[in-house]
Amino acid sequence: MSGPILLATSGRILRQLRRDRRTIAMLIVVPVLLLFLLYYMFDGAGQRFDGVALVMLGIFPFVIMFLVTSIAMLRERTSGTLERLLTTPAAKPDLLFGYGLAFGVAADVQGAVACAAAYWIFDLRTAGPAYLVIGIAVLNALLGVALGLLCSAFARTEFQAVQFLPLVVIPQILLCGLFVPREEMAGWLGGLSRVLPLTHAVEALQQVGLHPEPTAVMWRGVGIVGGCVVLALGLAAATLRRRTP
């Protein structure tokens, strides 16, 4: 791995993103629009809105970054630029961490805008500080990036890549404790829920909602999600082959 190549790769990905104004607008505006919908669904600010909006601040970046990354990486594979890069001194981590860094920067902007809207426009209240919410939201974005990079290896077309959303993302949303509290789930469902990374991200966010100071449960959640990011990136690196049939 080389610092300059990693930074050049991140810069290149951000430059590609910059030329795609519509995607930038979607990245920034869509979470705010969805918060607006939630706000009116729950008849304005209040405890129920607080609970759901807080979890949503973690789910939006995860879903959006998963989609953006899996398509971007698939384009890299199908355009031949990936094969070309693998014949150059660029190492696999340069590429994967380059993607992680570039979309991590995009996620920072997205998370900051969504949180600003949630706290200032929609009057979200949390016991803990907003920076922890943004931090966990960005970590979730990285989880989306890492899983997106991994899943793109198993898709040949953009149609197939999009199909990983219902397969990989939606079960995590259903089981993360947003719809049914995990304690009320059947034993096997609760167990399944515990092995899905998004569950731990949501738990960490809920801890920030309930406690003014970071708690041990929050740090455990953050640690598990961080571990999953590293694991998924490692597996994604294993799917990048310099030699192919």
Binding site: R12, R15, Q16, R19, D20, S79, G80, T81, E83, R84, T87, T88, P89
Partner: peptide
């Protein structure tokens, strides 16, 4: 860095 390779279909970033 010593062998240059140019594929049949141009492998460059069309959005750059």
């Amino acid at each position: 860095s010593r062998v240059g390779y140019v594929t049949q279909s141009p492998s460059v970033y069309s959005d750059l």
